[in-house]
Amino acid sequence: MEGDFIKINEWLLPLSWIYGWGVRLRNQMFELGILKSRTFDIPVIAVGNITVGGSGKTPHVEYLINMLCNKVKVAVLSRGYKRKSRGYVLAEADTAMAEIGDEPYQMKRKFKDIYVAVDKDRCHGIDQITGNKETSDTDVILLDDAFQHRYVKPGINILLVDYHRLIMYDKLLPAGRLREPKSGKSRADIVIVTKCPQDLKPMEFRVITKTMNLYPYQKLFFTTLKYGNLKPVYCGPDRELSSINENTHVLLLTGIASPKQMIVDLEPYTKNINPLTFADHHQFIASDIERINRMYAEMEGDDRIIITTEKDNARLFGMKGLSDEVRQHLFVLPVSVDFMLGQEEEFKEKIIGYVRKNSRNSILAKTKDDNKSDNSNNPGNRPRTISFRNH
């Protein structure tokens, strides 16, 4: 059910009140203009959340990339969490994971024709992307995990809310997992409830919609996770997920914020799941490799496999010390998102419509220009950053 992963540490609530006061003060300073938000003359789409931990940001950013990359030149700008470099870094084909972080590294490996950059200062990062000759043909910038980065005012602000950790039932840090008060959702143009069960009932959709209590300018969508075939990390053919059965023993190797959903999704195939869980963005070391080898060797059954995530594989691949047996049975489980309630086309229209109105160099913009009368002096035809709430 919704909110079933929420755990509130009641004894920490006094600290949450202090934390909340500080966050509210910061937000108020932006509202009053004491702290400044910048707009840019290029389409900027931000994807983020107001909770600590995984709400499905990377699969949703990848969904946007897939939607746009054949129509426009896409750049993804991330903070590059836990990277070893500093400042602005533009990923190249041979850039090491340690230089840009695991999630940007994953996206660069999967989408070789897009730009992937990291910069803690998102305004500086956007200036670098638009100002540098090698990336000046960028049509749209996707900001990864930037809902709290208020120094940038995106044209579309997408807020992700985990079905299992609905913000309306959660509390501020450190008692709960909220980074800011629930009222912060008012900045979102689009809210997506992620990781929904595929068999969610119509009544549950209505209850969640009412609970979220969004403004008229905000649009609510629902997505669920979709898994692909298991991909071997080192050797061998793909393996269909349906090939896992009650005789299969799985070592589920994760270093993500919320591995519970993967366990829930794999349990219909087999109950023999042994989780090996590390902290989010965990950097694997030699002792971890020894532990993986040992746990796999101790597993029972003839059909034994290790399943990990794409993000974990970005940090695990290339590590020395994995046994031959582990390397032969190590698989990545790709994940993507599906829109529910037949909402996919509506979502695409909103995103592509925004980019079309504001990007002059893209195929979308040229198509629009070819089909309209000459009206170049109309201010509405100049590139600008817009928000759905203003329309």
Rank of each mutant, 00 (worst) to 15 (best):
D189K: 09
V47F: 03
K133G: 00
C69E: 15
A91W: 05
L160N: 03
S376W: 05
P43T: 08
M340N: 04
D144S: 10
E103M: 14
C235K: 14
I129H: 10
A365L: 03
M299N: 00
F40N: 04
I244T: 04
K231C: 06
E103K: 10
I34W: 14
I156N: 03
I208Q: 08
D113F: 03
L341N: 04
L251I: 10
R165V: 05
V72G: 02
Y163V: 02
V335W: 04
T270V: 01
V326A: 01
Q28C: 13
G20D: 08
G318R: 11
S258H: 12
A175T: 00
N274A: 02
M262D: 10
N381M: 01
G236A: 12
I305E: 12
T309I: 00
I244L: 14
P154W: 05
D41Q: 14
S362P: 00
K348M: 07
H249F: 08
R356A: 11
V191G: 06
H329R: 15
N274G: 00
R26M: 12
T211P: 01
E300C: 08
I126S: 12
I114P: 05
C123V: 15
M212I: 10
L330M: 13
T130W: 10
Y269F: 15
F331Y: 15
F284V: 07
G48E: 09
A96N: 02
G33P: 10
F222D: 02
P216M: 07
I273C: 01
P216V: 07
I244F: 05
V76I: 05
H281L: 08
F221G: 01
P202T: 01
V89E: 05
S136A: 15
L364E: 06
H391Q: 13
S287L: 04
R177S: 15
A314M: 12
E298Q: 13
M295R: 13
K82V: 06
G80H: 01
E246M: 13
E325R: 10
A117I: 04
R360C: 02
T95M: 07
D312A: 11
M97F: 07
G342A: 04
K57N: 09
V52S: 08
S359R: 07
T39V: 11
A91L: 10
R26N: 02
N378T: 02
T211F: 08
K226H: 11
G53I: 12
I100Q: 02
E134I: 12
P268Y: 02
F147T: 10
Q198I: 07
N381W: 11
E240R: 15
L220V: 06
G3L: 11
G155T: 10
M203I: 10
A297F: 06
L166Y: 05
L12R: 15
M107D: 09
E62L: 08
P259W: 09
P275Y: 11
Y227V: 01
G318F: 12
M212S: 06
H124R: 15
F205P: 11
S359M: 04
R187T: 00
Y105I: 08
R177Y: 13
I42R: 12
R150C: 07
C123Q: 15
A314R: 11
S78Y: 00
L316K: 06
I305C: 05
D102L: 11
A314Y: 05
